[in-house]
Design a protein around this nucleic acid. Sequence first.
DNA 1: GCAATATATAACCATATGGTTGAATATAGC
DNA 2: GCTATATTCAACCATATGGTTATATATTGC
Lengths: 120, 120
Amino acid sequence: MVEYSSELLDRTFGALADPTRRQMLAQLSAGETCVTDLARPHAMSLAAVSKHLGVLEKAGLVKRQRNGRVHSMTLDPKPMQEAQAWLDQYRKFWDANLDSFATYLEKLHKQEPKHDDADQ
Amino acid sequence: MVEYSSELLDRTFGALADPTRRQMLAQLSAGETCVTDLARPHAMSLAAVSKHLGVLEKAGLVKRQRNGRVHSMTLDPKPMQEAQAWLDQYRKFWDANLDSFATYLEKLHKQEPKHDDADQ
DNA sequence: GCAATATATAACCATATGGTTGAATATAGC
DNA sequence: GCTATATTCAACCATATGGTTATATATTGC
């Protein structure tokens, strides 16, 4: 099993766990956007938006460019790439259909007896 | 942009945001495992482990089979599949190399003038 | 230079989270 | 039947989180 930076994954998955922040990333996928424009679709204070952006920035999911009083945010896909790479470890579980998945687990059972094996 | 169940993503990403829970999923990728065996590598109380498993179960990431006093947990990959599908929206950002990514963003800028466009 | 604008920071709040210890509940084994 | 085992539930704790309002800081435009 490949090693991943735990903190990066903690922060990335943590950031993605909020719907507002996911929505903001979707907005940014259309291109560089300033804070006020990012705030527009969200029924919350600018201060709350600023906080969310702080989380996204700390997770490395967005980058900030200050142009005077205007801050433009851009998407940085790298952490999501890492997250997807991590999830890819489990791809073998869903690429198989249901029957071969059950068979797969059965085989695992036979190869490695467990504490609870006696119950089966 | 495709619609996703927000609650499913909230819960899945939220569950994956914790290193202990990610480690448990890794353990379960080897096959059905009882709670005590899942707890073994983790320097924490059984009650804490139970809580984590509750989070994973609520997110649908694990399924529980009670065999008397022994609870066997198995991996359910479906929520991770959903999460990866959601992340796939951003694949186009990291599949391109850095130069074409910058070009890509420039094109977006030209097509859609933004509030902060005047600064450029 | 001053008022307007963009945004962050601070303090607050209610709730959630990742842990603890202690107790409770159900099952297994002798 | 009683002790041991597997696991959850309850109460607690310190910290974090997603919001609020108020204030501060920096920049812009006239």
